[in-house]
Simulated assay, not measured.
Amino acid sequence: MENLLTVTIDKQLPSFRLRLNLRVLNEFLVVVGPSGAGKTTFLQCLSGLQRPERGEIVLNGRVLFSSANRINLPPRLRQVGYVFQDYALFPHLTVEQNAAYGMKKRRNGLEVQEMLEMLQISHLAKRYPGQISGGEQQRTALARALLADPKLLLLDEPLSALDHETRIKLRGELKTLQRRWDIPFILVTHDPEEAAVLGDRVVRLERGEVVWISTTRKRPDCTIRHG
């Protein structure tokens, strides 16, 4: 059965309201738009780091947030992975320890070492974040997010700090991971090339509103509706 995310949120930001009404299946959804358009706030509402004023967020039939029913699950209970722009790794933990942080159970039979091997960082298992490159830190953050067994993965400009060659390589890896995990990936970026390469669909936000949606890819049953 496919994972399904439905979101209807309304939240006041400093100079406009963020209003979104969307439905996402197992796809790579990319969100673009100018700085301050509400992209990161959208991710944080999904993860539980921010609370909408009104609306509902449902993942696979499980209510994560409902203003009407006064439900607001904390981030640790949402089964939502989040890869931050700065990766948010613990500097005092090794790559292996960072990856294992928050791991609740096996995912597809993969343990920490197998995950590190899949992401090509097993040889760095005993090193610390300060001893590895930006691309290796990004892979470590991905390993940690995936080992927590998410039903939805959020990525907030995870490639923005990397050099061009590393970005191109990691785009392909992200696409492969989404297909392998078969869960929704939602990525925020300012890079139109990155959006075109990764997105099954691309949504542009401006001042909290959807102004256009790409319609060139498959999955016609995945729709975003203006709210």
Rank of each mutant, 00 (worst) to 15 (best):
L49W: 07
E53V: 07
R54L: 13
V58I: 15
L59S: 09
L59E: 09
L59A: 07
N60P: 02
G61V: 06
F65W: 10
S66L: 08
S66I: 03
S66H: 05
S67H: 12
L73A: 09
P74F: 12
P75Y: 09
R76F: 12
L77N: 09
Q79E: 15
V80T: 07
V80L: 03
Q85F: 10
D86K: 07
F90H: 07
P91T: 15
P91Y: 12
L93V: 03
L93A: 04
T94K: 13
V95T: 05
V95A: 01
Y101P: 02
R106D: 14
N108L: 10
G109W: 10
M115W: 07
M115A: 10
L116G: 08
E117I: 00
L119T: 08
L119K: 04
L119D: 10
L119Y: 02
H123G: 03
H123V: 11
H123T: 13
L124W: 04
L124F: 01
K126D: 06
R127I: 00
Y128Q: 09
P129L: 12
G130F: 03
E136P: 00
E136N: 05
Q137F: 06
Q137R: 15
Q138S: 09
Q138P: 02
Q138H: 10
R139G: 02
R139M: 01
T140Q: 02
A141L: 04
A143E: 05
A143F: 03
A143H: 01
R144D: 01
A145G: 04
L146S: 01
L146Q: 00
A148E: 01
D149S: 10
P150M: 04
L153T: 08
L154Q: 01
L154R: 04
L154H: 00
D156W: 09
E157H: 05
P158Q: 09
L159F: 14
S160E: 03
S160Q: 08
A161H: 13
L162K: 12
D163R: 15
H164W: 07
R167D: 11
L170M: 14
L170Q: 13
R171S: 10
R171M: 15
G172K: 12
K175T: 09
T176S: 15
T176V: 13
R179F: 08
W181C: 13
